[in-house]
Amino acid sequence: MNGAGKNEPDGTPTHDPGKAPTNDPSSASRRRRHVAFVALALGATVLPLAVLAMLLGGVTLDGLGRIGWDFLTSYPSRRAARAGILPGLVGSISLISLTAALAVPIGVGAAVYLEEYGKRTRIARIIELNIANLAGVPSVIYGLLGLGVFVRTLGMGRSLLAGACTLALLVLPIVIVASREALKNVPDSTREACLALGSTRWQAIRQVVLPMAFPEILTGVILAVSRAIGETAPLVVIGALAYVTFLPDGVLAPFTTLPIQIFDWVSRPQQSFAVNAAAGIVVLMGTLLALNGVAIGLRARLQRRKA
């Protein structure tokens, strides 16, 4: 690519006439090369998708037979055939609900501030740059942040609440960026109409702008939630447990989640636990597919309305 890079666009014409005699009469070879490249590019685009489809198909075959009512409602066990994912499921659902309850109001609030109030002020630009940088911080670093701030300094311990706070900070950039995009798509004429009718700025935002942006904000929230559901590393770092035989009885209780349970099973050498991991993955992927289906459906409906 670097070699090509030295050939500035204006270098091309001096090159081509020299080649033209060999190229021109055999436009068939030119076409053949074109077709070959299209096939290569198409192959490179489709192959990773095909590989993923095959992997997911394989894990479904491996795990589907293991899934049943018992698997969903049992506690982990030293014997693979009796182990279940109940604590992981309950932990994941409680953790994600708490995370969303924290991240959605803060994220949407931040987006409203940046888009409606502080637009293009210097402080807004600093915050924007900061959010862009946070989005690139590895999730395991958020785990260290959670360990230092929520678990130790704020004394939450290795609890659901500490996990939810950590994950909320992790997905906050996703919620903010998506909500800002949604607010941007509300035409300014709408805001002006509200103000002309005598509403205050906040009334216009609360009663007209936010309701109009709501479906798109919801799509962003679903994306953030699906990211949070699959997160494992930061929760391991803040000290979520791998082997839990009880259900959390409050926000300060220790917990495990479905991905951590899968991680625990994958890490064991016995083949029977790998089957459990496969079954856990089927449940996790099923949940994610359902969520993404809802998000895609919402987006499609939105686009139809715009068109």
Binding site: L52, V59, S226, R227, I229, G230, E231, T232, A233, P259, I262, F263, V266, A274, A277, A278, I281, L284, M285, L288, N292
Partner: peptide
């Protein structure tokens, strides 16, 4: 969008 623990498996 696939969780990394799944990719690890």
């Amino acid at each position: 969008g696939v969780p990394t623990v799944v990719y690890g498996y």
